[in-house]
Amino acid sequence: MELIEIKNCYKVYNNGVTAIADLNLKIDKGEFVFVIGASGSGKSTLIKMLYREEKPTNGSVFVGGINVAKLRNAKVFKLRRKLGIVFQDFKLLPKLTVFENVAFALESIGIQKKEIRPKVIKALENVGLKDKMRSFPNQLSGGEQQRVCIARAMVNEPKLLICDEPTGNLDPDISKEIVDILDKINKESGTTIIMATHDRDIVNKMKKRVLLLQNGVLVSDDKKGSYKVHEGN
């Protein structure tokens, strides 16, 4: 069954730039998908449409049965509760500890206090940061901060994890570590993962489904793709 179904989707920004043109795409539950492409190819737009930071200009984007194109601003939270988002710049709150940062996500959606603590600890255990839960974000390395971000995205046990260049700010070894965590999450809990990236080493090593975007057009959809294959394009 498809978790994501995109039909005839167009996105034209107000300044006239066409970021996505006639995109048709299906992603099943439990898949691990890389979205690659040069800067300005529309991969960030695609990712942003999945959690409705951007709305498609035309066509439909279904995520878990919700049509993002028709989702009103006041109802966006219903979509976001079904998914977790990992950002390139982490978006952690500097004044809160690691524990509080993860708990913040649950508090914000009104989960009961006594339920919060075990969930947060479990999420931090999964990313191997339980012993750092009293630290503040600025006391952690980049890789550790990204792991906190993953823990926060996963704490509510979403069916879909959206990663917008999660390794963009990290060195290759740490990047590998982050992708291994994502792979583990994908395998253990069956969470669908969509990851936009520039990192050819990771894409080549993982042998997962790869979507290649060029100037807003999906030029290839390869079940066991790699970056090198597309280099000639």
Binding site: Y51, N73, A74, V76, F77, K78, L79, R80, R81, K82, I85, K91, L93, F104, A105, S108, I109, G110, R152, N156
Partner: peptide, 17 residues
């Protein structure tokens, strides 16, 4: 505003924000 942004992104309803 960062706090509000994160609240929005993790699925807090507008009312609760």
């Amino acid at each position: 505003r960062n706090e509000i942004e994160i609240m929005r992104l993790v699925g807090a309803s507008n009312t609760s924000i």
